[in-house]
Design a protein around this nucleic acid. Sequence first.
DNA 1: TAGCAACCGTACACATGATTACGGTTTTGA
DNA 2: TCAAAACCGTAATCATGTGTACGGTTGCTA
Lengths: 199, 199
Amino acid sequence: MRDGSKTQRQSEIERAAYAVLEEKGYAAASMLAIARKAKASNETLYNWYGGKQGLFRTLVERNTAEIRAFLEEQASESRAPLETLAALGPKLLQLLTSPRAIALNKAAASDPTGELGEALGAAGRDTIAPLIGKVLEGARAKGLLAFEETGAATDLYISLLVGDLQIRLVTSAAMRPSEQTLAARATSALTGLTRLLAP
Amino acid sequence: MRDGSKTQRQSEIERAAYAVLEEKGYAAASMLAIARKAKASNETLYNWYGGKQGLFRTLVERNTAEIRAFLEEQASESRAPLETLAALGPKLLQLLTSPRAIALNKAAASDPTGELGEALGAAGRDTIAPLIGKVLEGARAKGLLAFEETGAATDLYISLLVGDLQIRLVTSAAMRPSEQTLAARATSALTGLTRLLAP
DNA sequence: TAGCAACCGTACACATGATTACGGTTTTGA
DNA sequence: TCAAAACCGTAATCATGTGTACGGTTGCTA
């Protein structure tokens, strides 16, 4: 099997895993169901991922890697810090509320070992928050914002941006808002931040 | 069986259900395990609750009823609106991040049908938010706050108060902060609110 | 084109849980 | 006190999933 062929097969399998996960939930997302959906043999799944945990851990890592890559790309573009935030916010909110992200968060919540959650937190917030922090520090350096601790300022922004939206989506207590609503939320989060951290 | 005896037995069973749920997670919280823990027979569990769904739905309803009762009691005490909020915030944050609440949210996230989540949302936020809204409107009436839409103001407060704390606890991505940290978060949420909604 | 490694489809052993059933015991209520 | 109802312990039934095994097939590699 050619080099690219295997990674392609893997992404097919992982797409199938997402499909089953979003449809049936973590507990009912059996390896067999995923294998059937991907027209793969479960032996292959076990060989490649070790088991259910390993498969979904891979999903978490891939997903957060994608988000981090996107954020780093955005942050590296030379723009005014607040413009960077204005561009970043809506997209980040979309990513965090996407069906995939919600499904992964549900999986982490369902995982009795807490292993998936750790991976999600480590790869997710622990990489996202510092990136946001850098942007905020950039804004402070230009006299656009004033704050003492970067961590607290980052927390504040994330709170304003995300709020309890994720938890309500993960518990199926709410539907995902429209893209416009999300964008509006992002802008009001930014204006709120600038008012609370005004120099 | 005497009147009080049955409700007492029920609360024992429900305490056992919480214990198993917090220890093993929703998927692994089997009716048999709960019955063993409570020294009850599973036949009784099925007779009383219908099944696993019904048992946990009962848990959700009882829990949210308790929270609502607490909030209504607090809101009914005649105090200045902002003092009510100052008293309410820390306690509400404690309740929302308590092991029980987190376990129930995990259960809702694990429930493939989304039924538990609906119950959680309906009983939870849909009753909490209006109560908060009333307090905020009281503050507006006294010229302490200024806002157009009560719903948006409530959202803002809840965002500042809870932020992404719940989702990180539910996904096991974070540990529960100390009571002092929670209290500090509540006060900064309140000061943030008063600054953003200053008349 | 021959050999080989990986993959597919299927099946098997093993474990576990949901749900129902049943005899024995305790509690209720007349 | 005594019959009926409810509860307990146990087990049986049914379904499903995990993890492993195996022969047949495909496609690479030399």
